[in-house]
Lab assay of single mutants.
Amino acid sequence: TYYTVKSGDTLNKIAAQYGVSVANLRSWSGISGDLIFVGQKLIVKKG
């Protein structure tokens, strides 16, 4: 599943919304830090 980052989103908010960890969200999407951008597509795998 892809999630497109919206204004005001954080990795914590997105992870909580999908019931996954921030570490997994980073790993799946190839992100090393906490910086995400509006319009960026993140990969989300539901448990």
Rank of each mutant, 00 (worst) to 15 (best):
V5N: 01
K45Q: 13
Q17G: 07
V22F: 02
A23F: 06
G30W: 05
K41E: 10
K13Q: 11
V38E: 11
L25A: 00
S32T: 14
G19I: 03
L11Y: 04
G8I: 03
L35F: 13
L25S: 00
A16W: 10
D9Q: 01
I36K: 01
N12K: 14
V38D: 07
V22M: 08
V5L: 02
R26T: 09
V44F: 06
K41Q: 14
S7C: 13
I36W: 03
S21L: 07
F37G: 06
F37M: 09
W28V: 05
G8P: 02
T4D: 06
T4V: 15
A15N: 00
D34L: 07
K46Q: 15
A23Q: 12
Q40E: 07
I43S: 07
S7G: 09
A16F: 10
G47S: 13
T10K: 04
S27G: 09
V44L: 09
D9S: 01
Y3L: 05
G39C: 05
D9K: 00
Y3T: 03
K6V: 11
K41H: 10
G30H: 09
A16H: 12
V20Y: 03
V22Q: 05
A16R: 11
V5Y: 03
Y18P: 00
G47C: 12
S29P: 03
I14M: 01
S32Q: 13
V38T: 09
Y3D: 02
I14Y: 00
V44P: 03
D9R: 00
K46W: 15
V44G: 02
G47H: 13
V20D: 02
D34F: 08
G8W: 04
S32I: 14
A23H: 11
I14K: 00
G19T: 05
F37P: 04
L25N: 01
T4R: 07
I43K: 10
I31M: 09
W28K: 02
V44H: 02
V38Q: 08
T10F: 04
F37Q: 10
N12L: 15
Y2F: 12
V20E: 08
T1V: 14
L25W: 00
T10I: 04
W28N: 06
S29R: 01
G8T: 05
K6S: 08
A16Y: 10
S27Q: 14
A15I: 02
T10W: 03
G39S: 04
L11C: 04
Y18A: 07
I31W: 06
G19C: 10
Y2C: 15
V5P: 02
G30E: 10
L42Y: 01
G39N: 06
K6A: 09
G8K: 04
W28M: 08
G47Y: 12
G39F: 04
K6P: 01
V22H: 03
G19V: 04
V20C: 11
V20T: 09
T10G: 02
S7L: 15
I36V: 09
A15Q: 01
N12Y: 14
L42D: 00
Y3V: 08
Q40D: 08
G30D: 10
G19R: 09
A23P: 08
Y2N: 08
Y18E: 06
Y3C: 05
S21D: 08
K45M: 13
L42W: 01
K46N: 13
A16D: 12
V44E: 01
T1F: 15
Q40R: 03
V44D: 03
V38G: 04
N12H: 14
K13V: 09
L11W: 07
G47N: 12
R26E: 07
G30S: 09
V38L: 08
Y18M: 10
V20A: 05
D9V: 01
Q17K: 13
A15E: 01
S7E: 15
I43Q: 10
S27L: 15
G39D: 05
Q17S: 10
V5C: 06
K41A: 08
V22Y: 02
V38K: 06
D34I: 07
L25T: 00
I43Y: 10
K45V: 11
G19P: 01
S27T: 12
S21F: 04
K41I: 15
R26H: 05
